[in-house]
Simulated assay, not measured.
Amino acid sequence: MGAIIADEGSKPEILASVAQATAALAKLKTIWNDRNIALSSKIRLMRSLVMSLFLYACEYWTLTADTDRRIQTMEIRCLRKLLSITYRDHISNEEVRNITRQAIGPQEDLFTTVKRCKLKWYRHITRSTGLAKTILQGTVQGGRRRGRQKKRWEDIPEWTGMTLGAAMRKVERREEWEELVAR
């Protein structure tokens, strides 16, 4: 699937996705500058054309505080480009989000979308039987590296507010899990 495997986790893959999405955003410059197209239509186009390209295979990313920041930066950069707002205009990121919220209503941010995709994939793998489930639930022998540890699949309950066992049981009940992911 074109995944980049590196020692530093998913950072190179996320950077490659950012580069692809930025290139797609630049190619659509004539649409963003067109004053005859409504802002709501531009935002929907950006979410369907640019963000979908960015989110390809996001289920496999290892999320850290740095990658979280990069994902949020990508989203704000796209919105600023779409709204023709530069950083020299001294408009805060929250104000940019408010402008888009007024244009199309409340939308989940990009990092929340990544987490939702990861939770759906987690349910899919946990319900299956095979190598992916074994790898997902397995442990590796040896010591840990220094510094803050990367997020693991055992950290999924942190997003859901449940213990690992409760999350594993809830995965078996599809409707309840999808309701949890929607929240």
Rank of each mutant, 00 (worst) to 15 (best):
Leu79Arg: 08
Gly143Val: 04
Ile91Gly: 06
Thr163Gly: 14
Arg127Glu: 10
Ile43Arg: 00
Asp34Leu: 03
Ala6Asn: 09
Glu158Met: 05
Leu53Asn: 03
Asp34Thr: 02
Gly147Arg: 04
Lys29Leu: 09
Leu25Ser: 10
Leu28Thr: 04
Cys78Arg: 04
Leu28Arg: 04
Glu178Tyr: 14
Leu63Asn: 02
Asp89Tyr: 14
Leu49Thr: 10
Leu136Thr: 06
Glu154Asn: 10
Gly2Asp: 09
Lys11Leu: 15
Lys150Gln: 14
Arg148Ser: 06
Arg148Thr: 04
Arg169Gly: 04
Ile43Met: 00
Lys150Ser: 14
Ser128Lys: 08
Asp66Pro: 01
Cys58Gln: 01
Ile135Gly: 02
Gly9Asp: 07
Ser41Leu: 01
Gln137Glu: 15
Arg148Tyr: 02
Ala19Ile: 03
Asp7Thr: 08
Lys11Trp: 07
Tyr87Gly: 13
Leu110Phe: 10
Gln107Asp: 00
Arg69Leu: 08
Arg35Thr: 13
Arg88His: 15
Val181Met: 12
Gly161Tyr: 12
Gly161Gln: 12
Arg70Gln: 15
Gly142Asp: 07
Thr64Tyr: 05
Thr73Leu: 14
Val96Glu: 03
Leu49Ser: 10
Ser48Leu: 05
Val114Asp: 02
Glu178Phe: 14
Tyr56Phe: 07
Val181Ser: 07
Gly105Pro: 02
Arg123Asp: 02
Ala103Pro: 05
Ala38His: 08
Asp34Val: 01
Tyr122Ile: 06
Pro106Lys: 08
Phe54Tyr: 14
Ser84Gly: 12
Tyr56Gln: 05
Ala3Leu: 12
Arg44His: 05
Val181Glu: 09
Gly147Gln: 04
Gly9Arg: 11
Leu49Phe: 07
Ala3Glu: 10
